[in-house]
Design a protein around this nucleic acid. Structure first.
Length: 699
DNA sequence: ATGACCAATTGA
DNA sequence: CAATTGGTCATG
């Protein structure tokens, strides 16, 4: 390769800067200078050999993969002629950065650089595949900013690792698709204003809705129809669900509605090769309908027309890796930036979704009164002591007679689902006679079993409860009230001899249920789907889900119950064992999760909790957190709570502390900016790291 | 991170 | 006075 003038290996002598040491320096220094010159000469020779710079757009802006927050911006490199074509925006490159070879993405090509000095040439284009589309590049910037995290971290979530073999294979285009425009409106009948929403979507619009599904709704089919409408408008669709089981359901529904080979599924389970293959299918535009779990929110869907999220209250939507983005927030940022329609649906309603309605960001979509009536009837069966004592059968199976009768009747029509809280879900103890939750006599904290052999002790202050006496009935016995699905299944088997009873929970989740009359005992979240829906759904021990002390206890319990009741068939029954005075249970009976969320939102506003306020935590060593607070330029008004010992920290060895920072909702972006700035300063000054979480899912 | 550079600090 | 250490700055 021919060298350019001024960059030839002979150039250094002529180009020597005036301040460079002259030749009469002592021997040692002269040797050093000579050595440095030889090195520079070699470098320039190498660069000259590789780096004749292209004429058109000779500058490549590159995001370098370094973990330092203050380097989180594009750097300019020159583009050698050999890479003029391949170094397109979106490709992976290798560049020299701060003396080392690092990976990066080209985000832009430009005619000139505003960088003063000489540009180093790109070292290598790793592959000409443009894996970071402009839309996703912009999204990663939004997400990093929102969560005060580094863009490199978000890019790692957004772009899967390369797999060279997979890249060689082409991605066949989807076959032509034939859609029935009326089918979607028929499927959505009964949810208002779905028809208007779908028409708007079909016409290329970007309507946004928070959707409350009627119980018994075959939601995968409705979402598949919505995706079909987006596809019919010449655009793509991205559907995000909590787990692999839901992906599988939606996968089947999409095949049903769109035919085969129109969509791609993305799950965490598939290996690196499959993951990259599916990613390429999407980034190359060979498929434009994508369904997946939270990792799919960054999928580079072409011409995105619709983003949909199912059951946004499920904690699986929260990414556990820094900077901890939530699928809901990422999708909504995406809908805004890419002008796509949005659909946030579920049997429940989160206060965050309610916030979208109150802010006027989205419209509400709910079942009509008629549809709700035609669907599932929910009743509460009180589990009063009296009833239990009179009814030995009920006592054995924790089922009041009313439940027993309902199950018996339903079994003649179809399968029955029994939801029972998970073993160890909360190892809080209760009196074995009257079932009053056992409380610490010192501080009224919940008594727990911390180990199989230890005495029950208070979960808050650690006081051992020995001896213990029930303040209600003076009983002396304690029991772990969570019986677990296996025991429950056994008990139900005895109560209904001749009925098939199967269990689904934890690591043994049933995909399908046996044909014919059967009782399925499942823990929350592990309920199998019955093809035609359940004839009856029973919720046992509802008080247990409410026994947690978490912020979202009630909302979360209602969500789990709603998801179980949602699996009932149209015309089915649901019977709930619990306290009829409990507001969450009343909301379930009335199928008024939106009303519950609205009241919950008001309550949170009063006590300054999200989403009425924007909240962030800063965690780390006491000194590091202290430094962080000094450096933080927080917006006003602001509340800083703590520092207090961080949760989960063991007493002696790692004494991490945490502060909670909250600001009015409108100051959220300012808080994110301040925290981002903090991380940049901290990283530039090499201070001890702190973990920043914006909107942590739990506190 | 890594390296360069400058300034203050330490040792002979 | 030179050698060393520590803080700051830039990385294209």
């Amino acid at each position: 390769m021919r060298s350019q003038a001024g960059t030839t290996p002979r150039a250094p002598r002529a180009g020597t800067p005036p301040e460079e040491p002259a030749l009469e320096l002592p021997g040692l220094v002269r040797d050093k200078v000579a050595e440095g010159r030889a090195k520079a000469k070699a470098t320039r020779a190498r660069q000259a050999a590789e780096a004749e710079i292209t004429d058109v757009d000779p500058v490549a802006r590159v995001l370098v993969d370094v973990p330092l927050a203050h380097l989180d911006r594009p750097f300019d490199y020159s583009v050698p002629v050999a890479m003029a074509e391949s170094a397109r925006p979106g490709v992976r490159v290798k560049v020299r950065f701060a003396g080392q070879d690092v990976d990066g993405f080209v985000v832009e090509r430009a005619a000139a650089s505003d960088h003063g000095g000489r540009l180093t040439p790109l070292r290598r284009v790793i592959s000409p595949e443009p894996v970071l589309t402009p839309a996703v590049a912009a999204l990663t910037a939004d997400v990093a900013e929102r969560y005060a995290g580094s863009r490199a971290d978000v890019l790692r979530l957004a772009v899967p690792p390369r797999h060279a073999t997979v890249e060689k294979a082409p991605s066949p285009a989807a076959p032509p698709v034939h859609l029935d425009p009326a089918a979607a409106e028929t499927a959505w009948a009964g949810h208002e204003p779905a028809a208007a929403y779908l028409r708007h979507l079909a016409a290329g619009g970007a309507p946004r809705a928070v959707w409350h599904a009627a119980p018994g709704t075959d939601w995968p089919h409705l979402l598949a129809h919505a995706a079909a409408v987006a596809l019919g408008s010449g655009r793509g669709a991205l559907l995000c669900v909590p787990d692999g089981k839901d992906v599988a359901r939606l996968d089947r529904a999409l095949t049903d509605v769109l035919g085969p080979d129109q969509h791609v599924t993305l799950t965490a389970g598939s290996g690196p090769a499959l993951r990259y293959r599916d990613f390429l299918t999407i980034s190359r535009g060979a498929r434009r309908v994508v369904v997946g779990t939270r990792a799919a929110v960054f999928a580079p869907v072409h011409d995105l027309g619709l983003v949909a999220l199912w059951d946004d209250g499920d904690d699986l939507h929260a990414e556990p890796r820094a900077p901890y983005p939530h699928a809901r927030e990422t999708l909504l940022l995406r809908a805004e930036r890419e002008g796509a329609a949005a659909l946030v649906g579920g049997f429940g309603r989160t206060v965050e979704a309610d916030q979208l309605l109150r802010a006027g960001w989205a419209q509400e979509m709910t079942p009509t009164r008629e549809l709700r009536r035609a669907r599932v009837t929910v009743t509460i069966a009180g589990a009063s002591d009296v009833e239990l004592e009179r009814d030995p059968l009920a006592r054995a199976s924790r089922m009041p007679r009313a439940v027993h009768e309902a199950v018996r009747a339903a079994l003649t029509e179809g399968p029955v689902l029994v939801q029972t809280p998970r073993r160890g879900y909360l190892a809080a103890l209760a009196c074995d006679r009257c079932r009053t939750p056992a409380r610490c006599p010192v501080c009224t904290g919940p008594l727990r079993l911390t180990g199989p052999t230890t005495l029950p002790a208070c979960g808050w202050c650690g006081t051992a409860a020995d001896p213990w006496a029930c303040p209600t009935c003076a009983g002396r016995g304690l029991r772990a009230p969570v019986i677990g699905d296996a025991r429950t299944a056994e008990e139900i088997g005895r109560a209904f001899p001749g009925t098939r009873v199967v269990a689904s929970s934890g690591d043994r989740v049933l995909e399908t249920i046996p044909a014919g009359p059967s009782v399925v005992v499942a823990t929350p979240g592990a309920e199998p789907v019955a093809p035609q829906g359940y004839a009856a759904v029973v919720l046992l021990d509802t008080w247990l889900l409410l026994a947690r002390t978490d912020l979202r206890t009630e909302e979360e319990a209602l969500r789990r119950w709603s998801n179980a009741v949602g699996l009932a068939r149209p015309g089915g029954r649901a019977v709930v064992v619990g306290d009829p005075a409990e507001p969450a249970l009343q909301a379930l009976v009335r199928w008024d999760q939106p009303g519950f969320a609205r009241r919950e939102a008001a309550a949170r506003q009063e006590v300054h909790l999200p989403p009425a306020v924007r909240l962030a935590t800063v965690t780390g060593d006491p000194g590091a957190v202290d430094d962080a607070l000094t450096l933080l330029a927080l917006p006003e008004p602001v509340e800083v709570l703590g520092p207090v010992a961080a949760e989960g920290a063991r007493e002696e060895d790692d004494a991490e502390v945490r502060v909670v920072i909250r600001v009015p909702r409108a100051q959220g972006p300012a808080l994110s900016r301040a925290l981002g700035e903090l991380q940049r300063i901290r990283s530039a000054r090499k201070l001890d790291p702190v973990r920043v979480q914006v909107d942590p899912p739990t506190l």
